[in-house]
Amino acid sequence: MKHLYYILVLLSAFCVYSVEAQEPPRRTPQATRGGRAETQKNTGLPDLTVRAQDMNERNTQQVGNARWMRVLYRNVDLSKEVNAPLYYPVRPLNGSMNLFTTIFQLMSEGKLVAYEYNSDGYEAFDEEHIVNFKDVLDRAYIYYEEVPGRPGEPSSFVINEGDIPSGDVQSYYVKEAWYFDQNNSIFDVKILAISPILTTTDDYGATQTMPLFWLPYENIRPYINTTYIMTSSINNAKTFTIDDYFRRRMFEGDIIKTENLMNKTMQELYPQPDSLQLAQKAIETQLETFEKSLWFQPDTTAVVDSKADKKAKKKTSVRGRVSSTTEKEKAASTQTTKAAKAPKAEKSSAPVRSVRRTR
């Protein structure tokens, strides 16, 4: 009996120890920090599938074989009506978001990688110049709450929709390349990168602009390829996506820089406003002239001459017809006038009695 008692005591002690050694259950993410993790809402922008990545690679324009290329930088002002589709709605409305809100949400979820904007004018899209999302929040003075992640995982950020400065991003820098691929006989334009510009007002009422970062267009295109926007105030149907808006070049922007050896902006090269506008128009004209020079243009003067000859021949033929008809009408009129004259009196065959004069 004593042995059985000792065995039961040892078994009970072992069970108690095993229960105490068990790891306590982890709290669910909803229970952490009083349920604040729930505020990290899903934006509805899904992760890229393998098919979407493959389609993005196939739709990427290759400019490595270009025999001629010119890189331009444009300032797209969203206050213009033609560029308004990138600005409205300022706040998410009925599932619709403007371009900056889409970019901001993707970066907050870690689905999008942006690169530093250097004031010296040289941008590099490599790992050394990847921008930290927290630094962007600090530079733009955006309120956020940082939630530490698990060991080995990055921290997440809780940001209210009202704190996203989508209304303060009033312009974009667009970097584009005009190129001619001789192997494929293609003359086209490729959007290389975009940079949102934050516009702020200080205490003295002065307006300041601050480019936030550079974003390669190929990184964001799979997401904006399915984001439909309204491009007209007359037709409210959303028939175009943001990618269509860029690819069809439905926006307007002034040229602020061309890639050159001295890496100078247009303002530095042409400080006077009049000379700057003339230089911008000259660049646009050069691009149009170069495109026209690539293809065979018909001789418009020969076409005009041939048309003039046809018109002249037509006029002469009409004149000949008119003259012939007038001659026929004249002949017919003369015949009718002759027929209309009274006939002469016929000579009588009866003898005429002569009357002699008598004295």
Rank of each mutant, 00 (worst) to 15 (best):
K2G: 15
L4T: 14
Y5R: 15
Y5K: 15
V9A: 14
V9H: 08
V9T: 15
L11A: 13
A13F: 14
A13R: 14
F14V: 15
Y17R: 14
A21L: 13
P24V: 13
P24D: 15
R26D: 14
T28N: 05
A31K: 13
G34S: 08
E38C: 10
Q40D: 12
N42D: 14
R51F: 09
Q53W: 09
Q61P: 03
V63S: 10
A66T: 03
R70C: 02
R70Y: 01
L72D: 08
V76N: 03
V76P: 01
D77M: 01
S79P: 08
S79V: 09
A84H: 04
Y87W: 06
V90R: 11
P92H: 07
G95L: 02
S96C: 06
M97E: 12
L99T: 00
L99H: 01
F104N: 03
E109Y: 09
K111S: 01
L112G: 01
V113P: 02
A114T: 09
Y117R: 02
S119Y: 13
E123Y: 05
A124S: 12
D126R: 11
E128S: 12
E128G: 05
E128R: 09
H129A: 05
F133H: 07
K134T: 13
R139C: 12
E146M: 11
V147H: 14
V147M: 13
F157C: 04
G162F: 10
G167H: 13
D168N: 13
K175G: 00
K175F: 03
A177Q: 07
W178S: 08
W178A: 08
W178N: 11
W178M: 06
D181F: 06
D181L: 03
Q182N: 11
I186E: 06
F187C: 03
V189F: 01
K190A: 01
P196G: 02
I197C: 09
D203G: 14
D203I: 15
Y204N: 15
Y204Q: 13
A206I: 15
Q208S: 15
M210F: 12
W214C: 08
W214K: 07
E218M: 02
E218N: 05
N225M: 00
T231D: 07
N235E: 08
T239L: 06
T241P: 01
F246D: 01
G253L: 01
D254Q: 08
D254W: 04
D254T: 11
T258Q: 05
T258I: 10
E259P: 01
N260P: 04
N260D: 06
M262I: 04
N263T: 03
N263C: 05
T265L: 05
Q267Y: 04
P271S: 08
Q272A: 03
Q277T: 11
Q277C: 06
L278E: 12
Q280M: 07
A282I: 03
I283P: 00
Q286W: 01
L287Q: 05
L287T: 04
T289P: 02
T289M: 11
T289S: 10
W295I: 14
Q297D: 11
P298G: 01
T301A: 13
V303G: 07
S306H: 11
D309Q: 01
K310F: 00
K311W: 00
A312F: 00
S324F: 12
T325Y: 02
T326I: 14
K328P: 07
E329I: 10
K330Y: 06
T334E: 12
T336M: 02
K341W: 03
K341T: 09
P343M: 03
K347L: 10
S348E: 12
